[in-house]
């Protein structure tokens, strides 16, 4: 069954395979193109370095006119990531543009790891530590990096 959303997701997948951005990967689950699994590798020179963070991306038939729901499956200690893995990122909410594809989503989340926005916190502990106690923040992040190897 081909709908605009499914057709577009096939194109997104093809592009992700042919022209993969550094440090991210993603693919539809075996039997459902509307649900993807993805991995983001922690960016170099950040406390997230070496981490492998798993995510799920759920699309609706309204994609790409509406953003998908993206969620970390791995535990991520970050000012803009909720305890349930939900991500507070403007392009996944009110600044979504239909010109974004899966590559763009994953690379945006990757840069969010490097550059948190502590002013719109989803995890207030992480936001506070990021602003006031960077050493403790990095320690907590490194703990979740190590956890990501086991997950």
């Amino acid at each position: 069954m081909s709908t605009p959303a499914r057709r577009r997701l096939m194109r997104d997948f093809k592009r992700l395979q042919e022209d993969p951005p550094t440090g991210v990967s993603g693919a539809p689950t075996d039997n459902n193109i509307m649900i993807w699994n993805a991995v983001i590798f922690g960016p170099h020179d950040t406390p997230f370095e070496d981490g492998t963070f798993k995510l799920t991306i759920e699309f609706t038939e309204e994609y790409p006119n509406k953003p998908p729901t993206v969620r970390f499956v791995s535990k991520v200690f970050h000012p803009n990531v909720y305890a349930d893995g939900g991500i507070c990122l403007d392009i996944l909410q009110n600044r979504w543009s239909p010109t974004y594809d899966v590559s763009a989503i994953l690379t945006s989340i990757q840069s969010l790891l490097s550059d948190p926005n502590p002013n719109s916190p989803a995890n207030s502990t992480a936001a506070q530590l990021y602003k006031e106690n960077r050493r403790e923040y990095e320690k907590r992040v490194k703990a979740c990096v190590e956890q990501s190897f086991i997950d």
Binding site: Y82, A83, D84, G86, C88, Q93, P121, A122, N123, S124, T125
Partner: peptide, 9 residues
């Protein structure tokens, strides 16, 4: 962190 569990967005 518990209290942050509600994803307002």
């Amino acid at each position: 962190e518990e209290t942050d569990a509600v994803n307002r967005d």
